[in-house]
């Protein structure tokens, strides 16, 4: 087992079969199309990208909610993808899942106590006293106090921020090693976002959790993660440390994404932004070349549209899938970043 690696994703493909009238094969929607990375213990990774780029499918595959078409997910050196649900029950208690819409993420017919009790029961904590203690502790940690006021409430009686904190408590209650958060604050009011993010951050730090934080909002990323992956058209097109990516965005798409961040600056009113026109590529029939080709301001005719760019290495952690950097070193497919670091 490589030192420190918690989660390892190898060449992951998740394709969904399309059928017409439920019978006839039409093709595959390539929601995740060749993603590889390693996540170390306690490390925090952010995945950004626009809607429909495959972020959610990627993390659902990592959570073993979807079965990958190709590739594998390895957690603590044990394969977890493509395995019968009953054989990876151990994995379920190792991963916490925070969803986007807190209200939909909580079963509306259960009280907060029942909601937090479920993971404990399922993962075999027989002692009623211990379950009770852990529920209260998790609620206290998420600042849902006084605890007794919340235990008997139903989700719809809570505010959005409180609901999301219950979701956080549920994700955390099994003491997982990995926390996966799928746009945890995008449905919340701006006023409670920071609070929830801070709680998320604090939980992650206190428990030394590895975390995958998915968002389409780059402005919240810098407070949270060490590394950023930018996804476009089912692929990771650029990856770097947070500072590097924010200061030196290399892929044209990343640049436009950074440009689109709204800063509270009066200058914005007088300034036109260059946002690339067009739509994201069809994932049913992805273009043969670079997936950003149609919208790319720097597209090179003849090359970009025909040949898919490999990962070019810009610096130690910085890779980019763009022909603009074709002079740089190409990362061999088998080689992983681990070797490079060690």
């Amino acid at each position: 087992m490589r030192n420190g690696v918690l989660l390892s994703v190898r060449d992951l493909h998740t394709w969904f079969e399309m059928r017409r009238w439920g019978f006839f094969h039409v093709g595959y929607v390539r929601a995740v199309d060749g993603v590889s990375f390693d996540l170390r213990r306690g490390e925090c990774l952010a995945i950004v990208g626009e809607s429909g780029c495959g972020k959610s499918t990627l993390i659902r595959t990592i959570l073993a909610l979807e079965t990958p078409t190709k590739g594998e997910v390895v957690f603590e050196n044990r394969l977890v993808s493509g395995i019968e649900p009953k054989h990876i029950k151990w994995y379920r208690s190792q991963v916490g899942y925070v969803q986007q819409d807190p209200f939909a993420a909580l079963p509306p017919f259960m009280t907060i106590r029942q909601i937090l009790d479920e993971p404990l029961r399922i993962n075999g904590i027989p002692s009623k006293r211990e379950r009770e203690w852990r529920i209260k502790q998790a609620l206290t940690e998420m600042k849902l106090t006084p605890v007794e006021d919340f235990l008997h409430k139903f989700p719809h009686m809570l505010s959005g921020g409180q609901q999301q904190r219950v979701v956080l408590a549920r994700a955390r209650i099994l003491n997982p090693k990995l926390l996966i958060a799928d746009e945890p604050v995008s449905m919340l009011d701006a006023s409670v976002r920071v609070e929830v993010l801070q709680l998320l951050r604090r939980t992650q730090e206190e428990l030394n959790l590895a975390a995958i934080y998915v968002t389409h909002d780059l402005s919240t990323v810098r407070h949270f993660s060490e590394r950023i992956f930018v996804m476009y058209g089912a692929q990771v097109i650029e990856q770097a440390t947070t500072n590097e990516l924010l200061e030196n965005p290399s892929h044209p798409y990343t640049r436009s994404l950074l440009d689109a961040i709204a800063e509270p600056d009066a200058e914005n009113a007088r300034q036109m932004r260059v946002v690339p026109a067009g739509d994201p590529p069809s994932l049913l029939r992805p273009p043969p070349g670079c997936r950003f080709f149609e919208r790319c301001p720097n597209a090179m005719k003849g090359l970009c549209e025909n040949e898919a760019p490999p990962d070019f290495v810009l610096s130690r952690f910085h890779r980019v899938k763009c022909w603009l950097y074709q002079d740089e070193k190409v990362l061999p497919v088998e080689e992983t970043e681990e070797k490079e670091i060690s």
């Binding site: 649900p85 029950k89 379920r92 939909a104 993420a105 549920r170 099994l174």
Partner: peptide
Amino acid sequence: PYMDAARAYGA
């Protein structure tokens, strides 16, 4: 989503 969440904690 709560069905996914339940599956994710092993129901």
